[in-house]
Design a protein around this nucleic acid. Structure first.
Length: 290
DNA sequence: CTGGGCTCCTGTCAGC
DNA sequence: TGCTGACAGGAGCCCA
């Protein structure tokens, strides 16, 4: 079962278990095969900890865990932002399930957090995902990983002006600049392609060459594509499911992604596929201009 | 500082 | 049916 964790999928996952797990007590933790980075803590040290409010930053989830007896120097016991916790990333193939009853771990289940309210389980075949212990979001490994992330797409400060400023002085193609995530987070390969199509912008256009008005349109398109996907339950192309195993509603139809050779929905010109930064870009050469 | 390319690992699918 | 190669939604890191 493939997950497709771009921002909407991560947010849908978060919403699907955040309320249920908040306030739970950790009974046990287990690691499977190594993920992208080491946990940085003994699983046993998590036992007795209390899970706080799960938040998201970009495609990362933050699970505050406070008050575990074995955690030295953990001053906070209320699950607040300054609490210690786990920074999680789903990589390219990760998914989280939170269930009351779960069987023994399967081949691709590489992290379990058993609580008195249920089991949070990370399944990740490719193991590009990560679960990393950090003394807080603002310090330690979490701070390092979250540093340099751009604005959240739904942050009111993310607008055409911000995008235009971020793109200025960059020679890279506008699509790669979007993907880099240091201007705005959350647009992965699919949604970057889709947003550029919506905005009528050629993905190969040098970032700095995008005019202010077109940057405005692109910012709007990024928000709109991500909002649509979010509303649809995070569904994009395949079989994404949230932490209860609920599938998305399949409303977010890709207009260009994965449609090489098929007619553009606007002008019927065949959709093109090119490679940018070792990744596929889909676009309509007729509707998307430089 | 920017930009380009590589890398981690496994599953799936198309083609022969 | 079996093998092989291409490709996959992320993103940190290293080097020019």
């Amino acid at each position: 079962m493939a997950a497709m964790p771009e921002l909407p999928e991560v947010e849908v996952t978060r919403r699907s278990f955040a309320d249920a797990i908040e306030g739970a007590t950790v009974l046990q933790a287990r690691l499977g095969k190594p993920l992208r980075w080491p946990l940085g803590l003994d699983c046993a040290s998590l036992v007795g900890g209390r899970v706080g409010a799960v938040t998201r930053r970009g495609k990362y989830l933050w699970l505050p865990i406070s008050g575990a007896p074995a955690q030295a120097g953990d001053g906070s016991a209320d699950g607040s932002a300054s609490s210690a916790g786990l920074l999680m990333h789903l990589g390219m193939s990760g998914s989280l399930a939170f269930t009351a009853q779960a069987g023994p771990p399967g081949t691709h289940d590489h992290f379990d957090l058993l609580t008195d309210r249920g089991l949070l389980r990370l399944t990740d075949p490719r193991r590009f995902g990560a679960v990393v212990w950090s003394p807080s979001q603002q310090t330690g490994p979490a701070a390092k990983l979250l540093a340099g992330l751009g604005l959240e797409p739904f942050d009111p400060r993310f607008n055409g002006l911000h995008l235009h400023a971020g793109l200025s002085g960059r020679r890279v193609a506008v699509k790669l600049a979007l993907l880099a995530g240091d201007i705005v987070v959350g647009a992965g390969n699919i949604y970057a392609c889709e947003a550029l199509f919506l905005a009528g912008i050629d993905p190969r256009l040098a970032a700095a060459k995008l005019s202010r008005p077109r940057a405005e349109r692109l910012a709007q398109a990024v928000r709109s594509v991500l909002a649509q996907a979010l509303e649809a339950g995070g569904t994009t192309l395949r079989d994404f499911k949230d932490a209860h195993g609920v599938a998305g509603s399949f409303q977010m139809q890709a207009r260009v992604y994965g449609r090489e050779g098929q007619p553009c929905l606007i002008c019927a010109h065949p959709i093109k596929r090119i490679t940018q930064g070792q990744r596929s870009t889909f676009f309509c050469s007729q509707c998307q201009k430089k």
